[in-house]
Design a protein around this nucleic acid. Structure first.
Length: 541
RNA sequence: GCGGGUGUAGCUCAGUGGUAGAGCGUCACGUUGCCAACGUGAAUGUCGUGGGUUCAAGCCCCAUCACCCGCUCCA
C-alpha cells in the first residue's frame, strides 16, 4: 500500500479536533519531534500502558515452562550516572563523525579512516567505471594489509599496474566527497557500502548541579532498559525472585532523532514499555519464542487484527553481535509503504549484565540455590570441590536476557490508525450519510460509556444523571444532554465510545434503558440497574 | 542532512497590494420523542514568527520556526 497522505491528514485533524494529540508548545510555533496528548489522548495512552502492565507484570500468561511467569516492576530515574551509558555502549563514538558500513554493520570514526588512492583508471573495454579505492583503519596494520591485498587483487583482475606503496589520503580529506560508491570499506569486498560521515549525538545532554562543566555532564536516558540492568542486583537482593523472572518498566526516553517524522512515530521524547526477562542460557530460546508470541498476540487481542500487523524475524546480518535472535513486531502505518517497528523482542545473551559487571566492578551473577541444594550431595562433601563448583555454571551464572521493548507512543499511534473508520449510517430520514468513528477495542476506548436523556424533560435527565454518577465510579463515563440524540451518538462515535445509554419514555414506565453499540448501531434494552454489570463484562473489568 | 510544498477561526479551506471570510464545530435561548434537527442570537484571528519594501502587506522580498511529501537516515 502506498503512503496514504489523505488518511493521515484526516486522522491528525481528528486527533487535534477531539483532543487526542496536540503539537507541543503549539502557541510558540511548536518544537520539532515533541507532542502532547490531550484529554482523550491521555486516556487512550494510559489504557495502553495500564493494560500492558496488567497483562505483562501483574497477571502475565503462563510461561514457556508452563509455570506462572514471575514479573516485578521498577521505575527508574531518567538521569543516571553517565557511566551507565559507557557500559551500555550508547556513549561511545557519539562525539565524532562516524561512518557506517551498510554491509558489515561496522562503524568507524571518520577521522580514523584512511583510503588507498592508487588507481584512477580509464573505463575498461566494457565501458564500466573502474575507479575504486580501498579504505582501512589508520594505525591498524592488519586493516591496512588487508586493504593492500584487496587493492592488488583488484588491480590484477583489471589488468592495472600494481603500485607497491600507493598514496593514502584521509577519508575526511574532501577528496572522496561524492565518491563513496567507489570506496571499498575495510571489512567488505565490494565498493559503495560506506555511508557519509555523520555526527551521532542521539543522547540528550544535560548538567547535574548548578555548575555546568564537563564533570557535571549527564544524559537523559535513551532507553529505559539500562535502569533495569543497573538495578538487577538490587532486585535480586531485596525481593525473592528466582530465575527465570522479568523486570518491567514503563517510562520516558529521549533520543535526539536526526529527522523526526511521521506524526508521533519518531519523537524525540517518547515512552517505552520494556521487559528484561532473565533466564538460563539453556532455556533462553524457549523464552524468546514465548515472548515473541505473547507480545504479538497482545496487539492482536487489543484490535490490531488487520493484515497490517506482522511479526518479522530479523536476519542474521541485522543482529547485534551479541544477539542470537530478534523479532520485530511491525505495523503498516498509513504514512509509509513499509512496515514500521512497534516493538522489538530481542535475545540479548548476557551482554548487558556482562558490560555492567565490567564497568561497575560489581558481581552481577545469579546463584541458583535450588539447583545447588539438589546437586551438592554429588560432591561428596569435598569442600574444595564444592567451592569451585558453586562458583561456576550451572550454579552461578550471568542470566541470559530476553528483551521485549515496546514503544507506548507507537502503539498508541497504531491503535489510532487502526481505529479510524469511515462508514455509512442512516440519518433521521433514512438517507445514508458518511460517519466517522474510532473503532477502539472497548478496553482501549478513552470513554467507555456515554449516558443521554432522550429529551431534556419529564425527569429523563435526572435518571440519566443518576446512571452516569453510578457508572463513573467504575469507568470513564460521559454525560450529554445537548442537541439531538443522533448528534450525540455521532459525537461519541468520533471519539470511539463503544456504548451509549439512552434514557427514554420506557425508562419512566419500566426502568429499562437502551444500550447502543458504536459499530453496529444495534440497540439492546436492559434494566438500568443491570447496566453496570453489562458494561463491566464487556470491558473486562 | 538535501530537494519540493504548506502555514488565515477549534477543524477543513477561500481570499494576487486597499474595511479578514465561508462551511463545519463551539456557546446561549427556544423547540425536541432513537442515529449528522430547526429557529434566533453569540464568541473566537496580533493571517506561524521576526525583519524589510510600500501611502497601504494575509498577499511582494529576506530570515526563521513548524508540519507534509520525496530522498537520506534510524548507533
Amino acid at each position: 500500500m502506498p503512503a496514504d497522505t489523505a488518511f493521515m491528514d484526516k486522522l491528525t485533524a481528528l486527533c487535534k479536533r477531539r483532543g487526542f494529540i496536540y503539537q507541543s508548545s503549539e502557541i510558540y510555533g511548536g518544537i520539532g519531534g515533541f507532542w502532547d496528548y490531550g484529554p482523550l489522548g491521555v486516556e487512550l495512552k494510559r489504557n495502553i500502558k495500564d493494560l500492558w502492565w496488567r497483562d505483562m507484570v501483574t497477571n502475565p500468561p503462563n510461561g514457556a515452562d508452563g509455570h506462572e511467569v514471575e514479573m516485578v516492576g521498577v521505575d527508574c530515574s531518567i538521569i543516571m550516572n553517565p557511566k551507565v551509558w559507557e557500559a551500555s555502549g550508547h556513549a561511545t563514538g557519539f562525539a565524532d563523525p562516524m561512518v557506517d558500513c551498510k554491509e558489515s554493520k561496522a562503524r568507524y570514526r571518520a577521522d580514523q579512516l584512511g583510503v588507498i588512492y592508487a588507481w584512477d583508471v580509464e573505463p575498461g573495454a566494457d565501458n564500466t567505471q573502474a575507479e575504486v579505492h580501498f579504505a582501512f583503519v589508520n594505525g591498524d596494520a592488519a586493516s591496512y594489509g588487508n586493504a593492500i591485498k584487496k587493492a592488488k587483487k583488484y588491480a590484477k583482475k583489471m589488468g592495472l599496474r600494481v603500485v607497491d606503496e600507493p598514496s593514502v589520503l584521509p577519508f575526511t580529506s574532501g577528496e572522496f566527497a561524492g565518491r563513496l560508491p567507489f570506496i571499498v570499506g575495510p571489512d567488505v569486498e565490494t565498493p559503495g557500502t560506506l555511508t557519509e560521515p555523520r555526527l551521532f549525538n542521539l543522547m540528550f545532554e544535560t548538567f547535574v548541579g548548578a555548575l555546568q562543566d564537563a564533570t557535571s555532564k549527564a544524559y537523559l536516558r535513551p532507553e529505559t532498559a539500562q535502569g533495569i540492568f543497573a538495578n538487577f542486583k538490587n532486585v535480586l537482593d531485596t525481593t525473592r525472585v528466582k530465575v527465570p523472572f522479568g523486570i518491567a518498566q514503563v517510562g520516558k526516553s529521549f533520543r535526539n532523532e536526526i529527522n523526526p517524522r511521521n506524526y508521533t512515530f519518531r519523537s524525540r521524547e517518547f515512552e517505552q514499555m520494556e521487559i528484561e526477562f532473565f533466564c538460563q542460557a539453556a532455556s533462553s530460546m524457549q523464552w524468546y519464542e514465548f515472548w515473541r508470541k505473547v507480545r504479538f498476540d497482545w496487539y492482536v487481542n487489543l484490535g490490531l487484527k488487520s493484515e497490517k500487523l506482522r511479526l518479522r524475524d530479523q536476519g542474521p546480518e541485522e543482529l547485534a553481535h551479541y544477539s542470537k535472535a530478534c523479532a520485530d513486531i511491525e505495523y503498516l502505518f498509513p504514512f509509509s509503504d513499509e512496515h514500521q517497528e512497534l516493538e522489538g523482542v530481542a535475545h540479548r545473551g548476557n551482554y548487558d549484565l556482562t558490560q555492567h559487571a565490567k564497568f561497575s566492578g560489581k558481581d552481577l551473577t545469579y546463584f541458583d540455590d535450588e539447583a545447588w541444594e539438589r546437586d551438592k550431595a554429588n560432591f561428596g562433601g569435598d569442600k574444595a570441590k564444592e567451592k569451585t563448583a558453586k562458583n561456576a555454571e550451572p550454579y552461578r551464572f550471568l542470566p541470559t536476557v530476553i528483551e521485549p521493548s515496546a514503544g507506548a507512543d507507537r502503539a498508541t499511534l497504531a491503535f489510532l490508525c487502526e481505529a479510524y473508520t469511515e462508514d455509512q449510517a442512516p440519518d433521521e430520514n433514512g438517507v445514508m450519510q458518511q460517519r466517522i468513528l474510532m473503532k477502539f477495542h472497548p478496553k482501549l476506548a478513552p470513554i467507555k460509556v456515554a449516558v443521554f436523556p432522550l429529551v431534556k424533560k419529564e425527569g429523563m435527565p435526572d435518571i440519566a444523571q443518576a446512571i452516569y454518577r453510578d457508572l463513573k465510579q467504575h469507568m470513564n463515563a460521559f454525560y450529554d444532554d445537548k442537541s439531538a440524540i443522533g448528534r450525540r451518538y455521532r459525537r461519541q462515535d468520533e471519539v470511539g465510545t463503544p456504548f451509549c445509554i439512552t434514557v427514554d419514555g420506557d425508562t419512566l414506565k419500566d426502568g429499562t434503558v437502551t444500550i447502543r453499540d458504536r459499530d453496529t448501531l444495534a440497540q439492546v434494552r436492559i434494566h438500568k440497574d443491570a447496566v453496570r454489570d453489562w458494561l463491566r463484562e464487556r470491558l473486562g473489568r
